[in-house]
C-alpha cells in the first residue's frame, strides 16, 4: 500500500458536512491533512476538560484507584488480549527505522518521490492504545482482594478508521471506570454505570438513551462475535441524536468483558476463580462534540443550566 496522501473528498450532502464546516471555520478544530486527526483550540479543550471533570465527579464515591498510562502500550499486551484477532484493521503499530546510511538515503528518496516507505521501516514492540483500559489488565495479574478492585483511567485511544465525520476521530480520549472482580460484581458495575452515565449526561440537556450494541469485529468471524455480544447483551452504548438528521451516535459505552481480559493475564478473584471485568467509558471528545452540535459552536452562549453543570 502506498503512503496515504489525503485526497480532499466531497463532503456536501453528508449529514455531518455543515457541523464540520462550522468547527473548522470557527477554529474550534484544526485540520491536519489527515482525516480524523485534528488540532484542538482552547475553546474545544475547555469543553473537554469540563466534561472530564463531570465524568470524574460521577464516580467520585467509588474509591476507584486513579491511574494513567501513555497512549502507547506493549505489543505483547496486544497479542494476548485478543485485539489482533478481533480488530486487526483498527490497530496502530509503531514503526521506526533501523537500517544503515544507505537504506536511510533510500528512505529519503522514496519519501521525496511519494513511494511506499513501508518496507524500509521495522515494527517496534509498541502499539497505539485502542482503549484506555487495555494497558491496565497486564498489571493486575494475581489475586484480587475481596470485593474486587475499581480503577479510573483517562487516556488517548487510537482507531484506524479515517473519516471526515468529526465524531469519528482516529485519535481521541476516553475516561473509563473499570471493575475487576466477580461475575455478579461486573454486571452490577456495568448496570450501575449505565444509570450514572444517563444521569450525568442528561444534566447536559443531551437526549441520551441506552441501547444494546456491538463492537465492529473484523470479517465473517467477527459477525458471529458481534451477534454473540448482542444476544448476551454485553455491550450498551449511550447514544444521542446528532445533526439535523438526528443520527444516533454513541458518546459513552458500558461493557461486560466476562473473563476476556482476566484469562490471558491470570487475574483471579479472592475465591481463586477467574475474575470478570467491566468498564464504562465516557467518550469525552464525542460528548464535547455532541454539546457543540446541540447547543451551538459558541460555548459562551450555551444555556445557563448547561454552563452551570460544566462550569460550576
Amino acid at each position: 500500500m502506498s503512503p496515504s496522501t489525503s485526497e480532499p473528498t466531497t463532503t456536501d450532502g453528508e449529514p455531518w458536512a455543515e457541523f464540520r464546516r462550522a468547527l473548522l471555520d470557527q477554529g474550534i478544530l484544526l485540520e491536519t491533512g489527515v482525516d480524523g486527526i485534528y488540532g484542538r483550540s482552547a475553546t474545544y479543550e475547555s469543553v473537554v476538560e469540563a466534561v472530564d471533570a463531570l465524568a470524574v465527579s460521577a464516580g467520585a464515591d467509588l474509591g476507584a484507584v486513579n491511574l494513567r498510562f501513555p497512549p502507547v502500550m506493549p505489543w505483547a499486551t496486544f497479542e494476548k488480549n485478543g485485539y489482533l484477532e478481533s480488530f486487526p484493521d483498527q490497530m496502530g503499530s509503531v514503526h521506526s527505522f533501523r537500517g544503515d546510511e544507505k537504506l536511510h538515503a533510500e528512505l529519503l528518496r522514496r519519501t521525496e518521490a511519494h513511494e511506499d516507505r513501508g518496507p524500509l521501516l521495522d515494527a517496534t514492540d509498541i502499539v497505539l492504545c485502542p482503549a484506555a483500559c487495555h494497558a491496565l489488565y497486564p498489571t493486575q495479574s494475581g489475586t484480587l482482594p475481596d470485593g474486587g478492585r475499581r480503577f479510573e483511567i483517562f487516556g488517548y485511544c487510537f482507531r484506524h478508521e479515517p473519516s471526515q465525520d468529526p465524531f469519528r476521530m482516529q485519535s481521541f480520549r476516553m475516561h473509563e471506570f473499570v471493575y475487576l472482580g466477580t461475575p455478579e460484581g461486573a454486571r452490577a458495575h456495568r448496570d450501575d454505570w449505565i444509570t450514572r452515565g444517563l444521569d450525568v449526561l442528561g444534566r447536559l440537556d443531551l437526549e441520551v438513551e441506552s441501547v444494546v450494541a456491538n463492537d465492529p469485529f473484523f470479517g465473517r468471524p467477527g459477525r458471529m462475535l458481534a451477534a454473540n455480544q448482542r444476544s448476551e447483551e454485553l455491550k450498551f452504548e449511550l447514544v444521542v441524536p446528532v445533526f439535523s438528521a438526528r443520527r444516533e451516535t454513541a458518546i459513552s459505552s458500558s461493557n461486560c468483558h466476562l473473563d476476556h481480559f482476566s484469562r490471558p493475564f491470570a487475574i483471579l478473584t479472592s475465591d481463586g476463580e477467574l475474575a470478570h471485568s467491566a468498564c464504562f467509558g465516557f467518550g469525552v471528545d464525542r460528548i464535547a462534540l455532541a454539546l457543540l452540535d446541540r447547543h451551538g459552536t459558541d460555548p459562551s452562549r450555551w444555556p445557563a443550566a448547561v454552563r452551570g453543570v460544566l462550569w460550576p
Binding site: R220, P221, R223, M224, A227, N228, S231
Partner: peptide, 10 residues
C-alpha cells in the same frame, strides 16, 4: 462450504 450470514450466531 461457507456458513451463510444468518447462521453466524452462537
Amino acid at each position: 462450504f461457507e456458513f451463510p450470514e444468518k447462521m453466524l450466531k452462537k
